[in-house]
Amino acid sequence: MNPIAIVGAGPGALDLMTVRAQRRLKTADVLVWTDSLIPVQITTLVKDDCEKIQTSSLTLEEILLVLIQKHKEGKKIVRLHDGDPCLYGAISEQICRLNDEGIEVEIIPGVSAYQATAATLGFELTIPDLTQTIILSRADGRTGKPKKENLQKLASIQSSLCLYLSARHVEEVQSILINYYHVDTPVAIAHRITWPDEWVKIVPLSEMAKTSKEKKLIRTTLYIISPTLKIGNKRSKLYDPTHSHLFRPK
């Protein structure tokens, strides 16, 4: 069988792609890629004779027609998504349609923007006595969200909250968050993280919307709202000499 590979490009940097992802790109006959969200440098990994098809102006139906037709021609196809395709990748409908055509799909994960942002800033998002939970979500936006996952409920936990696809709604987001997090809670704003022109900054929650508007951020932007972004000396018990476990008994 010749499955279509749905590949996560990661946040943008070439060297943050997985080895498996790079292997699939280097052997692809056809690259169907999200050009509006992925740096063009990543497409340099494919063969010189690889056919490159941009999807920013295509509908889902048009993309699927391309994938199905190229598969019938016996081509090795990579459907390249930004970040991790299993997170806001809209891959479910692609997989279902391809499966209806008897086409197998291979999914290759990618590093997500929240991981790249935390690494770039040099912070851990789970700190003892502060939060041990990371929530990945987004503003309601045009497509909506289940009512049980409204932002008020998620914010009430006061954990590390990572918001994708929310820059266009940042004023509303801030007005909600400020009811649950202290106004001085650090917010990491990351735009095109790991791209050559990346911009990332930590600001107080009270300046989240103002900063976003000043930078004219409307897309490819991630927000991390977390008490862990304050520098402190919280120590995990894992390496505490007074703490025993399976590999370090008393």
Rank of each mutant, 00 (worst) to 15 (best):
K76R: 15
L98S: 07
I103Y: 14
I108C: 09
I108N: 05
A90T: 13
V78E: 05
K72R: 08
R79V: 09
Y88Q: 00
Q94V: 07
D84I: 02
P85D: 03
G110F: 00
I107D: 04
E73L: 02
I77A: 04
D100S: 12
G89I: 10
D84G: 14
I77R: 12
L80S: 00
R79P: 14
I91D: 02
N99W: 01
E93Y: 04
G102N: 06
I108F: 00
K75F: 01
G74D: 00
L98N: 01
E106M: 11
L98C: 04
L80K: 01
R79K: 01
D100V: 05
G89S: 05
R79Q: 08
K75I: 07
R79Y: 14
H81T: 15
V111R: 12
I108D: 07
A90N: 12
H71C: 15
Q94F: 02
I77T: 03
P85S: 13
L98T: 11
I95L: 04
H81D: 07
I103V: 10
I108Q: 08
D84P: 13
D84A: 13
I95M: 08
K75M: 04
G74E: 02
I95S: 11
E106P: 13
N99H: 11
P109E: 11
C86A: 15
G102R: 03
